[in-house]
């Protein structure tokens, strides 16, 4: 058994153990508890719901790996969605063309990227704690969004946008495909890009990274800009799924994204973490909520259980490391 675990750890990485065990546990429990759990409907609902939370988690992931955080992800996504919505409305609303949508997507990405870049510049050049900078950025963006929309919805988009939110391609939901592409991109970024290498080095010791010739300020600005861009992708998906934009959409995801990242083995102090375990952790969270839904419970019970799952996984890590230590000593 021990050697099996070791071999698993060697091939998948030690940070994969927690999410994988949680995945197996959730599959077994719901497989037994809910008779129609293993159905196309369950996986369909997971596939359609995963991308929103997933994309926002990817946006949260990079700052977490640098030892920071981006508390403004949800409102950055909203604001990017708003930018897209206005471009669409300015080009005919429900009659807007595909070209207008392309323009709208660019506007969304520009908005998200700009918000992220501002955050990054503030963090890199003032050395203020990222929690503070992004928290005030979050309050500012929320205020800006509410001011611009007067607290209401913006809707009335062309019909083809709904396919982006609800359509399928090759049997897979379009939002899921976009999400999978982003997961792949982030995985490549972290394992093969100079930026990914640098941001991990910054996460465990920014000064040592600077002394080794890494451009730490540039890396920080890029990390938060990329985070903002990923928020914009999430904002566009939300726009397509709800066929409307409202400031506050997805607000409750904010702390869940942090939870998903930690569940996926991201080191809370930064410097260590991979995309794939986080991806598995996201699937676990979504399966948990879909399974409960099947059994007749609502999303709120799932939220509570997400918290419990987090505590259990973290506690298990503590107990297993102290167990390993005590065995080493004797």
């Amino acid at each position: 058994m021990n050697s099996l675990i070791q071999r698993l750890n060697a091939t998948l990485g030690a940070d994969m153990a927690g999410p994988l065990f949680a995945l197996v546990a959730v599959l077994v429990i719901f497989g037994i508890g809910a008779d129609n759990f293993f159905s196309a409907a369950t996986f369909g609902s997971v596939a359609f719901q995963l991308p929103e939370l997933g994309l926002l988690t990817l946006a949260m992931l990079l700052p977490l790996l640098t030892g920071g955080i981006n508390l403004a992800v949800t409102f950055t996504a909203n604001l990017a969605g708003l930018a897209a919505a206005w471009v669409l409305q300015a080009h005919g609303g429900a009659d807007a063309s595909g070209g207008a949508f392309a323009l709208a997507a660019v506007a969304a990405l520009a908005t998200g990227g700009l918000a992220g870049m501002m955050t990054g510049v503030l963090i890199a050049y003032t050395r203020a704690h990222p929690i503070l900078v992004t928290l005030s950025m979050m309050i500012f963006l929320r205020g800006l969004g509410e001011f611009l929309t007067r607290g209401g919805d913006v809707s009335g988009f062309p019909a083809f946008i709904a396919t982006i939110g609800h359509g399928s391609l090759l049997g897979l939901p379009v939002p899921l495909l976009i999400f999978l592409a982003c997961v792949g991109l982030w995985h490549l970024l972290l394992t093969r890009f100079k930026l990914g290498f640098g941001l991990l080095m910054i996460g465990s010791n920014i000064e040592a990274a600077r002394y080794s010739g890494l451009d730490t300020r540039r890396i920080l600005v890029l990390v938060y800009t990329l985070s903002g861009l990923m928020c914009a992708v999430a904002g566009l998906i939300m726009l397509a799924r709800f066929n409307s934009v409202r400031v506050g959409h997805g607000e409750s995801y904010l702390l869940i994204t942090v939870l998903a990242a930690f569940l996926g083995g991201i080191n809370p102090f930064g410097g260590f973490g991979r995309v794939l375990p986080v991806f598995v952790a996201l699937i676990v969270l979504q399966l948990l909520s879909s399974g409960l839904n099947l059994m007749g419970a609502n999303q709120h019970l799932a939220t509570a259980l997400w918290g419990v799952l987090m505590v259990v996984v973290m506690a298990a890590r503590t107990i297993s490391t102290s167990f390993a230590k005590s065995r080493k000593k004797t």
Binding site: L255, T303, W306, G307, M310
Partner: peptide
Amino acid sequence: ISTFNIFFG
């Protein structure tokens, strides 16, 4: 953050 979710949920 965990207890936040547990309490509120």
